[in-house]
Design a protein around this nucleic acid. Structure first.
Length: 1016
RNA sequence: GGGCCCAUGGCUCAGUUGGUUAGAGCGUUCGGUUCACAUCCGAAAGGUCACAGGUUCAAGUCCUGUUGGGCCCACCA
């Protein structure tokens, strides 16, 4: 068995090894155990649209850190993995690719085929995403992987919709959508973009008519950029306080091109006195603001467009014309009739579809909604009474404010990829005007084809359907729960057809916390990946045990879309909140403070980082950035493919576009060679060397891992002959007690900070201990002890305890390197412990989160140790200031009290190792030897004879400067103490502290002055 | 337009309920081939805490305003 650790840590090898090891041993699995407390985290399901990016990496790091920590604390820690079908985003990606590569649209291949293609895409990307998660060390229970469209989740979706339908929480209504007339589909708000287009601004007028429809002679003027919409006008609107029009409000106008008469109304939200003529035409079916106004004034919603963008039958003589042609003809007609006043050229912002690049038409269509009033109120209550707590707390406000609007939630989407709305309807003209919710135990289908349903449906029908129905139309809507295939077939046979639309993606992700655990099945546990369905036991232990979750870890932009809705559905379906805590982590920005994204060309690829720095380094760095105040800025740079030098990315780089000829390139400042780089504006030329985007901030984590590795390497090299045995308190050296004291403090600090989700502070504490205390001081102090056979054994035992504890402490932050080192430690020192050495667990992942008795913290001892440190620092300072070679042995004289002298003598041996200096003498009777450099520590003065080396003038200057600095501080403190207000009002404790400090400063000044006197 | 957040050495960030001399990493300068580590060691320089007022015995920290930046929401006939 070799005690030698490889000279450098091989991150890639360790990662492969331990990912597999953990999986094989089932360490990530979490099964209900009534004897132990649970800890549940549900992953914020990544979209299957593409690979993971830095945001996911940060999100995953935090969750894994928490999961590993809680697991080590003895909890049954479940981290539930899974992915989201992400309706619109995924369908869009697949459609775009299909169009680019094959020139096909979804209409060419049909619903079935498209959905099949998307499933294929989903399978590829899901595999890729899950693999990425594994690569960053995620200790998810991989047996429980879920997907929002899998059977378990689908069932939950169906049941939720069914329940809401039955409770009257779901209704069908009208809503304006962004209609792409080219693709003939609705597109989401985030799939449209504004583009300024040269257009016209027409000012026209409508004649005011009397009750008999005869012109009164007055006219009312308005301006518009879309004259053809006047075919669907429902009113002309003015501001209620606009005196120009006040006597016209309530009168009627006639639309000259179609002869309809419409009212003049007053609406302060829509009309603005200062704009245009102050009057505006209202087209509720074709403009979002007009739509809202139409609702307020109960105006008819007249749709004038066909899905392909031509004018429909409501457009009278303009029927069949494309909307732009109709616009020309309407304008011509208005002009011919003498109602056109003027035309201006104007740049108009027009919404365009991301996908077809054609202009969007606001289009009124049937949509499904969830009534939010009561559901939202319950979700607000849960946060306000503390059942759900936000970290940092301020985000609770975002959540509450949004929910308080209680805007009904539009849950239908005109897509093919998603959960199809489980409602069947009978075409108009057949059957009664009814709405029904069918299930095996609810309403049922009668032999004669009628549906027996609860009486309450009649009322709901009247309340929710009437606005969407034209007179004479009749409609039956049936909602069917999951698992009733036969019923669906029967409905089909009766001529019912299922709604074409699918549910909003957030509808299914809102159920994630309980759907993934098998809800609504209360009879058995949810099925696991690749295993047969579990036996019916009459109870779903998994759901009961792991719900509600412990903490949700996510970023602030989906507090409303997702967090709020999970709470809402959790309360509705489970009667309890889905999680107790919500930790909102920072967002990752580039060096310019912009969000990272591919479309900006500033994205750093987590897998490339992992390749370059190692997973632990990336995780450790990320954790160090996760505080609660600010977003995280990662200045990025291009790594030269020739020499690896990094060129910082600037705005100019981001904006560089091809100007003809070869694509833009950057010249490396170091090796003077050129390279191309990833950009949203072009793909690098074939064969050209391409830089990758990196961020040097990850050096932080890499350097730390290197330090840890080498510290352990050193420790392991010195473990030869190690035997486990209890260490008597009396055998502990000063530095042993010191490091154990510091270790205890660190432990306490890290645990506390993790508890508060302050990962930056936890990381800082553990790094400082490891580097500045363990490595810089303790390991150095051990070196002489290892050379002495008598002191070796105790040193080894204490060292082993510290390393053992440290590895456990670090494991959640850096799982791979700690596991690698832990296994080595298990070989070298299988049994370890201060009082009763024991064999630790095989894997550090399953080891206990360390605890040390609070009594190990010894502040008096730490203070004494600090003096030793300061003495050595002062000696090094003198050496550095006078440029004395580190090889030269120095002598040190200390003037101090006998007590301090004794303490210094006790560690005299250490001076030699830490500063190549011999402590010659210490005591009250020491005076400055001739030609010595001096320093003052407050309660002790040090002298280092430097015969011939010291420049007396320089030393004088140095000490004078020091004295000046001290006098400045003293002045400040004395000023405070002589301030009557301060003495009268400041707490005694503060006054005492100031006095104490002042005394210290004065003592220090006195010794500096003595040194000065001796010098001159 | 509404809401939230941020502004601290060249860069990236800490700074607990106001209370000793404002800290760290990177970078910079100087010095180091000490048998764990140059991904390292030692030392140093570098800050009127964005600006202007106010509260207080005391302000980086609390309040008001200004400027600059970020995010979310709403809106722009």
């Amino acid at each position: 068995m070799s005690t030698e650790l490889a000279k450098t840590y091989d991150a890639a090898a360790a990662q492969t090894r331990w990912v597999e090891h953990w999986l094989n041993h089932g360490y990530c699995n979490a099964d209900p155990d009534p004897q132990r407390q649970q800890h549940t985290i549900m992953i914020p399901l990544p979209n299957v649209t593409g690979a993971l990016h830095m945001g996911h990496c940060l999100n995953g790091t935090v969750q894994d850190l928490l999961t590993r920590w809680r697991r080590m604390q003895g909890r049954v820690a479940l981290w539930m993995p899974g992915t989201d079908h992400a309706g619109i985003a995924t369908q869009a990606v697949v459609e775009r690719r299909m169009l680019e590569e094959e020139g096909l649209t979804r209409h060419d291949i049909g619903r079935e085929a498209l959905v099949q293609r998307i499933w294929k895409w989903k399978n590829d990307y899901e595999a890729r995403i899950l693999n990425q998660l594994k690569q960053i060390g995620s200790s998810c229970d991989w047996r429980r992987v879920r997907f929002t469209l899998d059977d378990v989740c689908s069932r939950a979706v169906r049941r939720t919709f069914f329940r809401m339908f039955g409770d009257g929480l779901v209704y069908r209504g009208k809503r304006l959508v962004n209609w792409d007339t080219y693709l003939q589909t609705a597109v989401a708000d985030d799939e449209v973009f504004h583009e300024d287009v040269a257009g016209h601004f027409w000012t026209m007028n409508y004649p005011v008519v009397d009750a008999a429809g005869q012109p009164t002679g007055r006219r009312i003027s308005f301006s518009t950029t879309r004259p053809e919409t006047m075919l669907g006008d429902a009113a002309v609107c003015v501001h209620p306080t606009d005196e120009r029009y006040s006597e016209l409000v309530g009168q009627m106008v006639r639309i000259p091109v179609c002869g309809r008469t419409i009212p003049i109304i007053a609406d302060g939200l829509l009309a603005d006195k200062t704009l245009g003529t102050g009057a505006v035409k209202v087209t509720p079916a074709h403009d979002p603001n007009d739509y809202a106004c139409g609702l307020r004034h109960h105006l008819p919603m007249l749709n004038i467009l066909n899905p392909d963008g031509t004018i429909n039958e409501n457009g009278g003589e303009f029927q069949g014309l494309d909307r732009f042609e109709a616009r020309r003809q309407v304008v011509a007609r208005m002009e011919a009739l003498g109602h056109l006043e003027k035309v201006e050229d104007r740049i108009i912002p027009i919404m365009h579809s991301d996908r077809s690049k054609t202009a969007i038409e606001p289009f009124l269509s049937d949509q499904w909604f969830v009534r939010m009033d009561e559901l939202a109120q319950n979700a607000i209550d849960a946060v306000e009474d503390g059942r759900v707590r936000f970290f940092p707390q301020r985000y609770a406000r975002t959540y509450v404010d949004w929910l308080a609007e209680k805007r009904d939630w539009c849950i239908s989407r005109q897509l093919w990829w998603g959960h199809r709305i489980p409602v069947w309807s009978q075409p108009a003209g057949q059957g009664d005007q009814r709405i029904a919710s069918l299930s095996a135990f609810g309403a049922e289908l009668l032999p004669d084809g009628r549906i027996q349903f609860p009486e309450c449906w009649r009322e709901q029908l009247a309340a929710t359907l009437a606005p969407g129905l034209h007179p004479g139309e009749e409609l039956i809507l049936c909602c069917v729960d999951a698992g009733h295939d036969q019923l669906e077939q029967q409905l089909g046979a009766l001529g019912f057809v299922q709604d074409e639309d699918v549910l909003d993606t957030w509808f299914s992700s809102a159920l994630w916390p309980h759907a993934t655990l098998g809800w609504p099945d209360q009879q058995r546990n949810p099925p696991m990946l690749g295993e047969p369905a579990p036996a019916v036991t009459g109870t779903n232990e998994v759901l009961n045990y792991f719900y509600p979750g412990s903490v949700l870890v996510t970023s602030r932009d989906i507090i409303t879309l997702w967090v709020a809705r999970m709470v809402l559905t959790g309360l509705y379906n489970m009667g309890d909140v889905p999680f107790r805590h919500v930790y909102i982590h920072p967002k990752i920005l580039d060096g310019l403070g912009q969000t990272m994204s591919k479309s900006r060309g500033n994205g750093v690829d987590p897998l490339e980082l992992i390749e370059k720095y190692g997973t632990d380094a990336v995780r450790f760095t990320i954790a160090s950035l996760c505080g609660e105040t600010q977003d995280v800025r990662l200045p990025v740079g291009y790594e030269c493919p020739h020499c690896q030098a990094v060129t910082p990315q600037t705005k100019e780089h981001q904006d560089m576009k091809p100007m003809g000829g070869p694509n833009p390139s950057i010249k490396c400042a170091k090796c003077k060679q050129s390279f191309q780089f990833p950009s949203p504006w072009f793909t690098p030329d074939d064969g050209a060397p391409v830089a990758r985007i990196v961020s040097e901030r990850f050096d932080y984590g890499r350097n730390f891992c290197n330090k840890l590795w080498n510290a352990c390497r050193f420790a392991f090299m010195n473990l030869e002959g190690y035997t486990a045995a209890p260490v008597a308190e009396a055998d502990l050296q000063v530095e042993d007690r010191w490091i154990l004291s510091r270790l205890s403090s660190t432990l306490r600090e890290v645990t506390l900070m993790l508890d508060r989700y302050q990962f930056d502070q936890a990381t800082r504490a553990v790094r400082e201990f490891t580097w500045n205390e363990f490595c810089d001081w303790y390991l150095e102090l051990l070196k002489p002890r290892f050379r002495n056979p008598e002191s070796k054994a105790v040193a080894q035992r204490v060292l082993v305890v510290v390393v053992d504890t440290l590895l456990r402490l670090l494991h959640p932050f850096a799982p791979f390197i700690t596991e690698e080192l832990w296994h080595k430690l298990n070989e070298l020192a299988p049994e370890r412990g201060l009082t009763d050495p024991v064999r630790r667990s095989e894997s550090v992942m399953m080891a206990e989160w360390p605890t040390l008795p609070i009594s190990r913290i010894d502040e008096a001892l730490e203070k004494r140790f600090e003096r030793l440190q300061q003495t050595i620092i002062a000696v090094r300072n003198v050496r550095s200031v006078y440029g004395i070679s580190p090889a030269v042995q120095l002598k040190l004289f200390m003037r101090c009290t006998p007590e301090v002298a004794e303490q210094l003598q006790a560690v005299a041996g250490q001076f030699d190792f830490l500063s190549k200096t011999m402590l010659e003498a210490a005591g009250l009777d020491i005076s400055r030897p001739a030609g010595a450099a001096s320093f003052s520590l407050g309660d002790a003065d040090g002298y280092i004879p430097l015969e011939g080396l010291i420049d007396r003038q320089a030393e004088l200057t140095r000490q004078t400067k020091e004295a000046e600095k001290l006098r400045g501080f003293i002045r400040g403190h004395e000023g405070k103490l002589s301030n009557a207000g301060f003495m009268a009002k400041a707490p005694e404790k503060v006054i005492a502290e100031i006095q104490e400090t002042l005394a210290g400063l004065k003592a220090q000044l006195a010794s500096v002055e003595r040194i000065l006197a001796e010098l001159s």
